[in-house]
Nucleic acid binder design. Structure first.
Lengths: 125, 125, 125, 125
DNA sequence: GTGGTCTAGACCACG
DNA sequence: GTGGTCTAGACCACT
């Protein structure tokens, strides 16, 4: 249950929280049914506002990663393989987009990018 | 001198301008010493605020792509292209690596990645 | 005396309790004068807090479905069933009307509506 | 552009706002591309907090009804028939659910409900 | 104790 | 001017 917040990152705090929870759920560190800290508790331990944590939890719930009930707290939702697959493809797409954006600015060809991609893919993991 | 701006892109307008100038400079379409449009002229032709173009030109100057002199206008600066190109390629590679890493754990094939890459590359800038 | 509690329902637990008691009273499973479980007994068997059951019993008493006396317990009250039944049917009709109205403008067929209705009706309370 | 909010309704204010915008967009009162009031302006005219309006607009954007851009404002999104169909089916389902809930409590049979539903559906519109 | 909603401020990036 | 993020309070319903 280690969430790390950086004020220097150019990612909003609530997104730093959601992405770390998603990672912990996807890699099995958090299992379905596990309880996660109350909004107030997490807000206190991270020294951020309750509202910020609330926004993070709201997003996690909307994306199907957790379930929250008033008066009971928040729990890791039953895990859904399709959800994970979608989320990971989304992340991979983000990186590809970023690579393409840079390539455009500095005039790197699609052929060159594709070649690099294949190279990395074939490398020993 | 074709700059295209999109209001639907989730990139700020000033960044759409800078990245397109950078690309034109990197691929030789704009040579060192060439003059670029005045802020007012460009703002008018793009139907955006002068302030927005001003911000773009400021950033281009800060990054060493252009030089502007009051009363004379803005000109493409002498470039150290190779340095810039190397740096950019390094960044693009990092993103490709990250994408590959995620793709491996979630069983996304190289073919799928390549397809996505081409898709993003062909999209309007 | 079978009360079923679901933590996934978006209905508060105390309301799940009251509505199931109301249903049992309306369909005659519980008759006027019958005793119902003590708060503590019910709370224990449902694995919920006594406070939650207390709130449910309070609401049932307020609505005239049960009578509770300190030291004796709670009993089903004499009912004016017909009045209640009419009022409830009127409310149900209103919702059906509203659903039909929406269905008409968006071309949802009667068959589809009937199917949905049956689906909801069969769901666990 | 008439939004009405009631503090007595048991619906949250932000939901009153979203549902009224959805209705105006679905019945054509607001067309694709139309601008809607800025968050601050609407908040002021409704005498509610900016945050409350923001939450409403965020939900509308997430559900694809509007598009918002920093510095430009919010606009009705290109309309999507499937989206509307889904939204209206969702609304119809809500009413059916409510009817079923009441029916259960007061022991109205599924057959009776189905009969009423058919009756309303066949009525002259 | 829990989460859900709301307020009245604030600073930031963008146009 | 616009929306996006964040804070530090508050009250409510629910367990």
């Amino acid at each position: 249950m280690d969430i790390i917040i950086s004020n220097n990152a150019n990612k909003p705090i609530y997104e730093q929280i959601t992405s770390q929870f998603k990672a912990m759920i996807m890699n099995g560190e958090l299992q379905a049914g596990d309880s996660i800290p109350s909004m107030r508790a997490l807000a206190k331990s991270l020294h951020v506002s309750v509202i910020t944590v609330q926004k993070a939890y709201e997003d996690l719930q909307r994306d199907g990663f957790i379930e929250t009930t008033v008066g009971r707290g928040s729990f890791v939702a039953a895990q859904n393989r399709e959800l994970f697959q979608e989320e990971q493809q989304r992340q991979a797409e983000e990186h590809l987009q970023a690579a393409v954006e840079i390539a455009r600015v500095s005039n790197i060809s699609l052929a060159k990018l594709t070649e690099l991609l294949a190279l990395f893919y074939e490398e020993e993991p």
